[in-house]
Design a protein around this nucleic acid. Sequence first.
DNA 1: AATTAGAGCAACCGCTATCAG
DNA 2: ACTGATAGCGGTTGCTCTAAT
Length: 196
Amino acid sequence: MDNKQCNSSHDAEVRKGPWTMEEDLILINYIANHGEGVWNSLAKAAGLKRTGKSCRLRWLNYLRPDVRRGNITPEEQLLIMELHAKWGNRWSKIAKHLPGRTDNEIKNYWRTRIQKHIRQTENSHGQSSEMMMDQASTSHVSSSTADPMETYSPPSCYQANMDQSMNDPSALHLAESNDNYWSMEDLWSMQLLNGD
DNA sequence: AATTAGAGCAACCGCTATCAG
DNA sequence: ACTGATAGCGGTTGCTCTAAT
């Protein structure tokens, strides 16, 4: 098959790394016909040389028909901030309140965008918001003492940015770099065409 | 035009919780 | 009650793309 798995004899059967379009189609087709099940046996039954874990992750984070990607709205951002202040890094819990969003996406979003904003604010203000960050991220939350939003409010520059983006969503440089993979519509239409 | 640095994101890893036998 | 298998979660890594120099 391909290069990256042909070395050791015993994991020769297990593929790792990015999923190919073919694999995606196989998984979509299989689940469309048989439904989700025990992931390990699903992987085998579908003929995928992937672990059940990998199949599950791929399905949940990318292939599910109801999954939404990119374009996190200002409302969603706010919600993420609020819930994160409340619950800390309980990504799956937070994701449950954002229909169509996955824990992985929210987690990545938080780490890349929001943490960056916080860090920038910290630098520009010379404040030790790192402590605040730590509290927010490790906090399950020290909510005992105060309202979480009190101890952790979005940095002002971030809020300004959000206000701005409320009026002009394009002001948010939200990644629309979805071009490097095939669209879900593509996959699902192909699935429907191929589906048996 | 080539190189480097940084950002963004998909996927893997390791751990814990839950369930079935 | 115990044990093994599986699912789920959060953290981390590594690849790719883009912007800056």
